[in-house]
Write a protein that binds this DNA or RNA. Structure first.
Length: 201
DNA sequence: CACCAGGAATGTA
DNA sequence: TACATTCATGGT
């Protein structure tokens, strides 16, 4: 079922090539900046960071908070997000990816202030290519509307995907991106989904 | 004018 | 455990 839906989305929209970024640090930074924020505004903030050479966690760690705040303002919530960027920068300053399995890694990320379930999984999947399925509000709404799975609990929904799909990082990356693409294209403006490529149940 | 965006922390019951 | 509030900018 889920795999057929994936194929339909892929055929309809094509590959999304998520996550759009040049470096691993940029993915991590973007994952925090995009919390409840449009990607368009995140791009402005990342542009500012790049322009000043601070789209880099080591550099973010060693610069005044106020300086980061000024650069990321277009992404909103700049006071808290500047702290979160500092926190995640400190975390990765002494972390060895190679000696940490995915479950441990996930728990460690969740202990960082500012990193919740979705942000942690986005970092794991897109920055480190760990096989975890990212869930967001679009995904939960999508499953409910299509009457595929009725739950708002993050890890329940995540298990639903991961137990019904092959354990494939590239599949997970594209599938989440396609659900976001679908939501942005149709479901927001048009709840009836008359043009939606996925049939309503 | 209201509403939302690729959430998370905090507080309340 | 389940909700409510707060955080902030920019587009529609």
């Amino acid at each position: 079922m889920l795999i057929e839906i994936y194929k339909s989305l892929l055929q309809f929209f094509g590959k999304q090539y998520w996550w759009p970024a040049e470096t691993k640090d940029e993915i991590i930074i973007g994952a925090i900046l995009t919390q409840n924020t449009s990607w368009q505004n995140v791009e402005k903030a990342i542009f500012n960071l790049k322009k000043e050479g601070f789209c880099n966690l080591c550099k973010i760690r060693d610069v005044p908070l106020e300086y980061i705040q000024q650069l990321i303002k277009p992404a909103g919530f700049y006071k808290q997000k500047s702290v979160y960027l500092k926190e995640i920068a400190k975390f990765f300053a002494n972390f060895d990816e190679n000696t940490t399995d995915t479950l441990q890694f996930r728990k460690m990320l969740l202990n960082v202030k500012g990193i919740g379930l979705e942000t942690a999984d986005s970092i794991l999947l897109y920055a480190f290519s760990r096989p975890v399925f990212v869930i967001d509000a679009y995904t939960i709404r999508f499953l409910k509307r299509k009457k595929l799975f009725d739950s708002s609990k993050y890890e329940e929904v995540q298990s639903f995907f991961m137990q019904n799909l092959p354990n494939d990082v590239e599949l997970f990356k594209e599938y989440h991106a396609l659900i976001v693409k679908l939501a942005k294209t149709y479901c927001r403006k048009n709840p009836n989904c008359t043009e939606c490529p996925i049939k309503c149940a």
